[in-house]
Amino acid sequence: MKSLILLAGVATVAVGTMAFAQDDVDPAVTARQAHMQLYAHNIGILGGMAQAKIDYDAELAQIAANNLAAVAALDETTYWIEGTAEGTKALPAIWENMDDFMAKQDGMTNAAAAMADVAGTDLASLQGAMGDLGGACSACHREYRQRN
């Protein structure tokens, strides 16, 4: 019985190690994907309110917008390392047009700051800032993200 448990334990560790080996992703890729998830999480709160899927809550909207603006203000230079596009949705065009790519990131920084200025005011102000925010996201996704 003990040996069975031991065997199961060894098998679990072995499978876990294999899974780790398969998931051996460059930490820079993990970091930038986490960055995008933080965007999506906070935009989800703001967008949910804008689309009337959740009730407008000025305090919560302000928190989400502040978080978004803080993430968008981060300097992403260390995530976007040349040669890390393989197996991700990042297109090699990023590194051929780094100035434009960075300019589009600045666009996101500005749109997120504009959202943080108004998200806690009222629902109409939040809704008014959503368009530019979405536009800033898709400006980058248009040029630099792989289709499916």
């Binding site: 999506a40 989800g44 967008g47 689309q51 979405g134 996704h141 248009r142 289709r147």
Partner: peptide, 20 residues
């Protein structure tokens, strides 16, 4: 909503030529 705002239900956004 997507055709209006470009946001997917998960609050990802439209990309590629679909932006146009």
């Amino acid at each position: 909503i997507y055709l209006d705002s470009g946001f997917t239900p998960d609050f990802d956004t439209v990309g590629g030529e679909m932006v146009d």
